[in-house]
Amino acid sequence: MSEPRWPFVVFDLDGTVVNTIPLIIASYEHAMWDVLGERTSPEEARSWIGQTLYATFHARRPSRAQELIDSYVTWNAAHLPELLEEFPGTPELLDALTAAGVVTGVATSKRRVSAENTLRYAGLEGRLPVTVAMEDTDLHKPRPEPLLVALERLGGSAAVAAYVGDAVVDVQAAKAAGMTAVAVSWGAAPREALEAAAPDHIVDTVAELEELLLG
């Protein structure tokens, strides 16, 4: 194996490291119906992934955003164990990165407790620390602040770091931070949307991602 291409790799969580897409879509559908009595299509709910809950719900019903958040969070936490799915090969990828000396972390728009529970149920808690969660920055993706704070905490710099994510906002945040933007096509965004965002790299399988990161 050759030297890692980037000594620091920061990951998005949902749809990148773990398959929480069905859970998130169902949680959005539940909250919108529970609080507003409105039906939300899976396609529309899928397009919201990557934003904070506050940004998503405030854009749709500012006066009831907190009720929507509370409904979402309660339902999501209750159904996390049954709806969480893994992306095969991810634990092995993280182990390979660690063995190669790559410093890794997570920068996510999720609340910290939710992110940590997600990693715990996925069996990845000891492999990948939640470096930056929603509470850690005032500004969120597609702004670069979460990624830059993650790099600071990991002891890295943007010039030697990659950010891996499945949403257009992930690509935008990585580019704004000056990091290498790596998009994965197995998550929330359609491949054509990721291509339009012009990441530095786009991969379709975990094996391709490992080859890119480790050579």
Rank of each mutant, 00 (worst) to 15 (best):
E211Y: 01
I24C: 10
K141Q: 05
E125H: 13
G105K: 04
T118D: 12
A100I: 04
G105P: 00
R120L: 11
L83F: 00
A161I: 02
P88Y: 00
A115V: 10
H58Y: 10
G126S: 10
P144T: 13
M1V: 12
E85G: 00
N76T: 00
R112S: 13
A174E: 08
L97P: 06
L97V: 10
A207Y: 01
N117A: 15
H30I: 09
L23F: 03
E211I: 02
H79K: 09
G155Y: 08
L154K: 07
G105M: 06
F11D: 13
V18I: 15
E86V: 12
Y54M: 09
T131A: 06
V102F: 10
L94C: 14
N117M: 15
T118H: 13
E152Y: 02
E192S: 10
A107R: 02
P199N: 05
E82T: 15
M179A: 02
D70A: 14
R143L: 14
A161Q: 03
T137Y: 04
A161R: 06
S63E: 15
A96W: 14
E3Q: 14
E192G: 00
A181R: 05
S47H: 01
G15D: 13
S2I: 11
S109D: 04
T90M: 15
D136N: 07
V206E: 03
D170I: 07
S157E: 11
A176G: 02
H30R: 05
A193M: 11
L151F: 10
L13D: 14
A133P: 04
K110E: 03
L13T: 15
L139P: 00
V10W: 02
D34M: 00
L119I: 14
R60A: 06
I25E: 05
V168E: 08
A188Y: 05
A150P: 05
R143E: 14
S63M: 07
L213Y: 09
T74G: 01
D14K: 09
V106G: 04
E210P: 03
R112V: 14
L53A: 04
E210W: 03
D136R: 02
V18T: 15
L139F: 08
A183C: 13
L212S: 13
I21E: 11
E29L: 10
H140C: 05
Q51E: 07
D204G: 15
V184W: 06
I202F: 02
D170V: 07
R111T: 12
A181W: 02
A45S: 12
A198L: 13
A159D: 15
L53W: 07
E145W: 12
